[in-house]
C-alpha cells in the first residue's frame, strides 16, 4: 500500500474543534486530534459519552455540530469520494444481510469498494474462520460468526483508515486474538485505526487514548 504525502503540517487524518450535540445535550466539544500512519486511537468514555457519535461523525455519516475533519489536510466534506476510498467502517449494526449467504454479502462489498485486484472470497472466508458456512443464510449464523463476516470487510476493502465500533463484541477468545493480530499487522503496514472497545487492547504497539469525558 502506498501512502500519500501530507500537504499540511498535520496528521494524515485529523479533526479540529469537533462538537456533537444530541437532543439538546452537548456530548463533547472542542475535540481535536490528529492521527498518523501506524497509529491507533482508542476512544474511551462512559456509556452515553458519545463514542459511537464520534465515530459516525469521523466517517462522515453524521454531521458534527461544528468543527471540521481533514484527510491529507483537505476537508472531508469537500473530498468525500477520495476519503471514502480509504475508509472502512464497522458499526454497531454489522451491515450484513441476514437473507444472503456470507459469500453474497462479501461479493457486494467488493462491488461497493472496488480494489485493484479481486481477492478470492472463499479464501477470505477461510481466513476469518467461516469455512463450511459459505452457503447458508447469514441469519442462521451466531452473532460472533456474523461479526466475523463484517470483519472480513477489512480484508477486502484495502482501506488505510479503519474506524471500528466495538469490533471485539461477541467474538470468542480465539476470535479476539485473531482480530488483535489483524489490527497489529495493519498498523505495522502503516494503516490507521480508530476504535472503541470495552476490554483492554493487548497490542504490542503503543495505543493512544482519547477519553471523551475530558471534552
Amino acid at each position: 500500500m502506498e501512502y500519500p504525502k501530507l500537504s499540511k503540517n498535520k496528521g494524515l487524518f485529523s479533526a479540529e474543534n469537533l462538537e456533537c450535540i444530541r437532543n439538546d445535550r452537548v456530548l463533547f466539544s472542542r475535540l481535536d486530534f490528529s492521527l498518523d500512519p501506524g497509529e491507533i486511537l482508542h476512544v474511551e468514555g462512559e456509556n452515553g459519552s458519545g463514542k459511537t457519535s464520534l465515530l459516525r461523525i469521523l466517517c462522515g455519516l453524521s454531521p458534527p455540530a461544528s468543527g471540521e475533519i481533514y484527510w491529507q489536510g483537505e476537508s472531508v466534506r469537500k473530498n468525500r469520494g477520495r476519503f471514502l476510498e480509504k475508509l472502512a467502517y464497522i458499526g454497531h449494526q454489522a451491515g450484513i444481510k441476514g437473507d444472503l449467504t456470507p459469500l453474497e454479502n462479501l461479493a457486494l462489498v467488493l462491488k461497493l469498494h472496488p480494489a485493484d485486484s479481486e481477492p478470492d472470497l472463499s479464501e477470505v472466508l477461510t481466513h476469518v474462520g467461516l469455512q463450511g458456512h459459505e452457503d447458508v443464510p447469514a441469519r442462521t449464523l451466531s452473532a460472533g460468526q456474523r461479526q466475523r463476516i463484517a470483519l472480513a470487510r477489512l480484508l477486502l476493502q484495502k482501506a488505510v483508515l479503519w474506524i471500528l465500533d466495538e469490533p471485539f463484541t461477541s467474538l470468542d477468545v480465539q476470535g479476539r486474538a485473531w482480530l488483535q493480530d489483524l489490527l497489529d499487522r495493519h498498523l505495522k503496514k502503516g494503516g490507521m485505526i480508530i476504535l472503541t472497545a470495552h476490554h483492554l487492547l493487548e497490542s504490542s504497539l503503543p495505543v493512544r487514548k482519547l477519553c471523551l469525558n475530558d471534552y
Binding site: L61, A94, K97, L112
Partner: peptide, 8 residues
C-alpha cells in the same frame, strides 16, 4: 435497520 444502508 441492519446497517447496510450506512455501508452503501
Amino acid at each position: 435497520q441492519d446497517g447496510t444502508l450506512e455501508q452503501i
